[in-house]
Write a protein that binds this DNA or RNA. Structure first.
Length: 752
DNA sequence: AGATGTACCATTTTT
DNA sequence: TGGTACATCT
């Protein structure tokens, strides 16, 4: 069958291989036995993986259905599918190319009954999981203040990530196990009765299938002759065990597993990714060949040098030496600023100036450590009218209106879907409160029937108050009609009908909030997306695994996102603001995970740096409004870790003005702002930073003392706590300030 | 059942 | 500071 797309003539095997560099070629051609491709940033690892897949097919070593190619995100899966289709000239439908979860789900559907599920099982998302756990905790009379559902969910997920029954958790977690094992068991029981699985279960059940059923293990070991894994450094233990089962023979020899990854880009440890998997590859898969891709095609020499110098400080790595033949480019610029506001202004101004010089906005990105940091930039960009987009907000499927609509469809297609029923029974408001819902729940438990049936029975016996009774009877009538239409009506039309008749659309139309219109748009978009599926079942099956919003606004926009969201992307110019201790590296990570955490943060810095093709502008602010109070911030240790020869440090005039003799800025630094052609360049070296950072005030301030601050002016000390002062400023109100940043009022002239 | 008030808290996030 | 989850009022 020809695909609708016109696919150019497939290039010959030789042609594909020719365009690769020697290392890439080696990785593509090493077809027998396990291979680990250690690929640095910007070395063309995805290219290698897809070419390898095409090579296997074109040399006739395996048919498409004997290959499994796994990625972590749907986006990566789609890209791989497109490339493979292009290289082989065949559409990839039905192939085992996809995310870990989508492939696991597909296999599980086939053998669901072996783990006590029906093949129509639903996949719960985080929202459903949380609601379920909350119900369980409440039923068990647990104080949800002290034991929040989120925490219980996090622990359950951690156990599942490890791919072991929770009974076997390490001894040092025994206390946790004692406290939560009970909830885990109830949760799993509930999932079973709901005929549902969570994301972790998709893999866990697959492990059970292969471990407990020799025939299936044999079947799949035989079936998958080649497995290719992208971003191997992000695999968790469950995924690792699954790959092992499929690719390790009973005699301990390993088959054709090819993993591509970069240990220096492992930034998902906090959600279960086990960097040890990639570090241990050689031991896990005997006879493994390691191929290093070290020629970088993305960045300039300075950028690569800075990134390499930084990451070299990590100890948990296999080590790669990236090199490039591209030019040196400009050194990294490190800019010190007074506060968050001036940082945002600085970034905005720089972007505008880049734009004037011809850099397209789509080639500029601002990467921050945490989501809340985007706000400052958004405000600034809005006020200067700079087009921007924030990447990584709530995704399409996670939006409230989409989840609501999907819940309607879920109950209609599967009346047993209690979670979906609960979501929509009072949406739009039908006057069903906690009390009425409780009543339905009670009846359902008592008769062991789903909530829809319980509702029907109560209504049949004349339950509920008269008013509620009428509305619910109306609802049930609609519901039965929708269900009756299910077989014959096209699912897109049915969806429109349901949204209309349930008054769900009317609910948003009557809402006057500014985003209501957007929500209605999204609902239309949902119906468009549904059109791509043949049946409602088909759509629902995929929705929890692959739904994404397609966002293609025609205008050029600068990108604003977290460092995590930036992985895999590249831009000409990258801004890295907020390089301050406590923010980046994040204080919490350091507190919770010590050196391991620090190394992951450093990898995050490395990911950020290696996103840039041509220029990097790092900045940090000395003062920041955090949670409503002013906090003093010192430059990130990562700034000092960048090799000096690759950076160019600049500070805002007056930045280090202080009564401390060592850091009194030279006069020209203070006054040079006026000189447009020779920007100020205070003589502060990177080493100098460390000392700036450690600078302490030699003056002990006292309550009631008059002080002067560079930005806030004169004030009176209200509270002292070691080096931290709370000052009541004459004009700017109360602020928390580090002692090093104020001087006694009588010395103010000397400092400024 | 819905509106209003208040205490509390505050990374990263895919599937 | 700003959002949210829960308690209390109407």
């Amino acid at each position: 069958m020809q695909s609708a797309l016109s696919i150019p003539q497939a290039p010959s095997d030789a042609e594909i291989l020719e365009s690769l560099n020697p290392a890439q070629r080696e990785a593509v051609e090493a077809l027998d036995g396990p291979v680990l491709v250690l690929a640095g940033a910007g070395t063309g690892k995805t290219r290698v993986l897809t070419t390898r897949l095409a090579h296997i097919l074109l040399t006739g070593r395996a048919s498409p259905f004997q290959i499994m190619a796994v990625t972590f995100t749907n986006k990566a899966a789609r890209e791989m599918q497109e490339r493979v289709a292009r290289l082989t000239g065949q559409p990839t439908e039905g192939w085992f190319l996809g995310t870990f979860h989508s492939i696991a789900a597909r296999i599980l559907r086939k053998h669901a009954e072996r783990v006590g599920l029906k093949s129509t099982f639903t996949i719960l998302d985080a929202d459903d999981q949380l609601r379920l756990i909350k119900q369980i905790l409440e039923a068990e009379n647990v104080d949800t203040k002290r034991t929040p559902p989120r925490m219980v969910l996090a622990i359950i997920e951690r156990w599942k990530d490890r791919g072991l029954p929770p009974e076997k958790v390490p001894a040092d977690e025994a206390a946790e196990q004692g406290r939560f094992l009970k909830f885990y068991r109830i949760y799993q029981d509930r999932l079973k009765t709901l005929n549902a699985v969570d994301f972790g279960d998709l893999l866990l059940h697959n492990l059970t299938l292969l471990q407990n059923h020799a025939d299936l293990l044999q079947e799949y070991q035989h079936r998958f002759r080649y497995i290719l894994v992208d971003e191997y450094q992000d695999t968790n233990v469950a995924q690792y065990l699954w790959l092992r089962l499929l690719m390790l023979n009973s005699d301990g020899s390993a088959r054709n597993l090819c993993c591509v990854g970069d240990e220096d880009q492992s930034i998902y440890g906090w959600r279960g990714a086990e960097i040890g998997n990639i570090l241990r590859f050689e031991r896990d898969f005997p006879g493994a060949k390691i191929v290093r891709l070290e020629e970088n095609y993305r960045s300039t020499g300075h950028i690569l040098g800075a990134a390499s110098g930084l990451i070299a400080r990590n100890s948990s790595r296999l080590g790669k030496t990236l090199w490039t033949t591209s030019e040196e480019g400009a050194p990294l610029r490190v800019q010190s600023l007074w506060d968050g506001e001036s940082e945002a202004r600085f970034v905005g101004d720089e972007i505008e100036s880049l734009q004037r010089k011809g850099t397209g906005l789509s080639q500029i990105a601002v990467l921050v450590r945490a989501g809340f940091q985007t706000r400052e930039f958004e405000e600034r960009f809005l006020s200067i009218g700079l087009p921007y987009r924030v990447i990584g907000g709530p995704r399409f499927y996670e939006r409230q209106e989409i989840r609501d609509a999907v819940a309607y469809l879920r109950v209609i297609s599967v009346p047993e879907d209690d979670l979906a029923f609960e979501r929509i029974i009072n949406l739009p408001k039908r006057g069903v409160g906690t009390a009425s819902l409780q009543l339905i729940h009670q009846r359902a438990r008592q008769d062991s029937v789903p909530l829809t049936e319980a509702l029907r029975r109560i209504l049949g016996e004349g339950g509920f108050t008269p008013k509620l009774r009428t509305t619910l009877q109306g609802f049930l009538m609609h519901y039965d009609r929708w269900r009756a239409r299910l077989p014959d009506m096209p699912h897109t039309e049915l969806t429109e009908l349901v949204l209309e008749e349930s008054s769900y659309t009317a609910m948003w139309q009557n809402e006057k909030t500014p985003d209501a219109a957007g929500r209605l748009e999204n609902l239309k978009e949902l119906i468009n997306a549904m059109a791509e599926f043949d049946t409602l079942q088909g759509f629902l099956e995929h929705v929890s695994l692959v739904m994404e919003a397609h966002k293609d606004t025609g205008t050029e926009q600068a990108s604003l996102m977290t460092l995590h969201a930036a992985k895999g992307l590249e831009f000409d110019v990258v801004f890295l603001p907020g390089w301050e201790e406590e923010i980046f590296p994040s204080r919490r990570t350091l507190e919770e995970n010590g050196v391991k955490g620090l190394e992951e943060e450093r990898r995050l810095a490395y990911v950020g740096l290696t996103r840039a093709r041509k220029r990097i502008i790092i900045s940090h602010a000395a003062n920041r409004l955090v949670h409503g109070s002013w906090t003093h911030a010192i430059p990130s240790r990562f700034v000092a870790e960048l090799p000096e020869k690759h950076v160019d440090v600049q500070a805002e005039p007056g930045m280090f003005a202080s009564h401390h003799p060592e850091f009194r800025p030279s006069r020209h630094a203070e006054f040079a702002t006026a000189d447009f052609h020779h920007p100020p360049r205070p003589q502060i070296t990177v080493e100098g930073y460390a000392r700036v950072v450690e600078r302490k005030s030699e003056h002990r301030f006292r309550k009631g003392e008059r002080v002067f601050h560079q930005k806030f002016g004169y004030g009176t000390v209200a509270l002292t706590d070691g080096d931290k002062l709370e000052i009541e400023f004459d004009h700017s109100g109360a602020k928390k300030v580090m002692a090093g940043f104020v001087v006694p009022a009588d010395k103010a002239s000397e400092a400024s």
